[in-house]
């Protein structure tokens, strides 16, 4: 029930009103990656459940991971984890009261995008090439 007292409270600005900048993109991506990791946590729980209680379900999951859709899901999770981890370091650095200068914030935003793609690519390459062997 939305009473008038509740509905008159301020709402965060919605996503579509911002002019594009690297810092704004990183902020939105941080939340988006967080949501992907939320879903990923449920899949990891399912994977562990299968490993504990159902060899048949585990075989299904392991087979799915090797397929194209499985790869997209694993890659999405891995990149999201890399991004959220690295951008999280940025947030913790901000919590110390540093790193807010516009050029610094812009540079670290780009750095996080580039480094997270490289890290995710390495992890996925290592994971999937070991799997084929």
């Amino acid at each position: 029930m939305a009473t008038s007292a509740q509905s008159s409270r301020p709402l965060s600005p919605h996503l579509q009103i911002w002019r594009f900048t690297a810092t704004m993109a990183a902020s939105i991506t941080h939340r988006g990656a967080g949501l992907v990791l939320y879903g990923g946590s449920m899949l990891i729980a399912l994977w562990l459940y299968a490993l504990a209680f159902s060899p048949a379900l585990y075989a299904g999951v392991a087979g799915f991971v090797k397929g194209p859709i499985g790869f997209v899901i694993v890659a999405g999770y891995v990149w999201s984890l890399c991004f959220h981890l690295m951008n999280g370091l940025r947030h913790l650095y901000w919590d110390s009261g540093r790193g807010f200068a516009l050029n610094t914030a812009r540079m670290t935003a780009w750095l996080v995008y580039i480094a997270s793609f490289i890290a995710a690519a390495i992890v996925l390459w290592a994971g999937y090439s070991a799997m084929g062997a």
Partner: peptide, 28 residues
């Protein structure tokens, strides 16, 4: 939790991705 998750997430990325295609017995 974020601070504690930094080393744990790195461990997870390395360890679990290297067991991606592991069969049931090996993963257990």
């Amino acid at each position: 939790t974020a601070a504690v998750l930094i080393p744990l997430a790195i461990w997870f990325l390395v360890a679990v991705v290297s067991h991606l295609g592991a069969d049931y017995e090996a993963a257990r």
